[in-house]
Design a protein around this nucleic acid. Structure first.
Lengths: 188, 188
DNA sequence: ATAAGTGATGTCACCTGGTGTCATCACGAT
DNA sequence: ATCGTGATGACACCAGGTGACATCACTTAT
């Protein structure tokens, strides 16, 4: 083994998740996270842009998979069908990280600063989905509306899923929510 | 005139808007804003919780008016009709501040930090609208979906409105967007 | 085998956002 | 004239974040 332990990034993530959970986000210091990981504050900021980002590393993966699902759907698909395909992709990803999703979500929900960061990630996801929809011929307004709507449905479903005692699959919860949205928009 | 010039808050807001516009948000220091307003850094933080909040003071007014519009609508109104009423209220408010809306929006869009703050304000608005919808008998999921959808439509319309060379009324742009959303959700 | 180079880390100094605490001063009330 | 009150200033301090440079293990060329 060399001078440096491997997986510095993963160690920092684990340390941060643990400390944020134990003592709260605001009460945790970057220096403490780094120390717990056997590193220094300066090194923390070489791996993560700021104190919040350590909880969001890897969130581009979800974005990539949802965009890919939109691109891969049959050419005849409606906007709502494309959103459904993206949500199925999200379901696949979420089920894979179920174990971490709950504590992470609890931490984020407990801090306005972290909630802000999550919201801008969601906005970035929506923008990426809108690009994919535009690329499939939808006009700008329709693409943006559909993309944001999809992200909203995802978020609503996520909150229900992460605290669901029955462990209902995300896919089912999301599909129900999407159907409910359709009712709202088409009724009256 | 006494020791203190009046309207310290307004002076701080003006100074901040001017400096953020001239030199950029990140490049502007709270001490500089305070100095331009004839005050000190400490006093700035007595009026505003942080460097971002100075651009968002008064945003509860929009929320109050949109919620009030939902509460005041006829009892038979559908969820979509209630969103429409809320958007009309937003239109009224936006037209009143048209002059400031553009430079302020430019500044916010230029800084991720400020965008984050705007997003959490939007989320708070959506939560308030969802409460109002629940109070009118909608179940939780429907209320949250409708409220977020309304905020999305508002935002899409706002971005078009603020840069529209024809100065089309916000109300019209928002109504068009809402109709387009309906098409998306009900088609296919 | 030794020297040079490379990449990850540590060290240190520094700026700025943000807060707690106490002093100060103008004003109104007594 | 005195006293209280509320807004402000002054000052010290902490933590997030960054730039610059030193350090050390490991690799590669000679």
């Amino acid at each position: 083994m060399g001078r440096w332990q491997p997986d510095a990034r993963a160690r920092l993530q684990e340390a941060a998740l643990a400390l944020y959970g134990e003592r709260g986000y605001e009460e945790t210091t970057v220096a403490e996270i780094a120390e717990r990981a056997g590193l220094t504050k300066r090194t923390f900021f070489r791996y993560f842009a700021d104190k919040r980002e350590v909880l969001f590393w890897g969130s581009e993966l979800l974005q990539q998979q949802m965009v890919a699902a939109i691109e891969a759907a049959p050419a005849t698909a409606s906007a709502l069908a494309l959103i459904g395909a993206a949500l199925d992709a999200a379901a696949e990803r979420f089920e894979k990280v179920r174990e971490f999703a709950r504590p992470r979500h609890r931490i984020i929900a407990s801090s306005p600063e972290l909630t802000e960061r999550e919201l801008i990630k969601a906005a970035s996801l929506a923008a990426a989905m809108a690009r994919a929809l535009r690329a499939r011929g939808f006009d700008d307004t329709a693409a943006v509306l559909a993309a944001h709507t999809g992200v909203t449905v995802m978020h609503v479903a996520f909150v229900r899923w992460v605290d669901d005692p029955d462990q209902t699959p995300f896919q089912q919860i999301a599909r129900d929510a999407l159907a409910q949205l359709r009712e709202i928009a088409c009724a009256g």
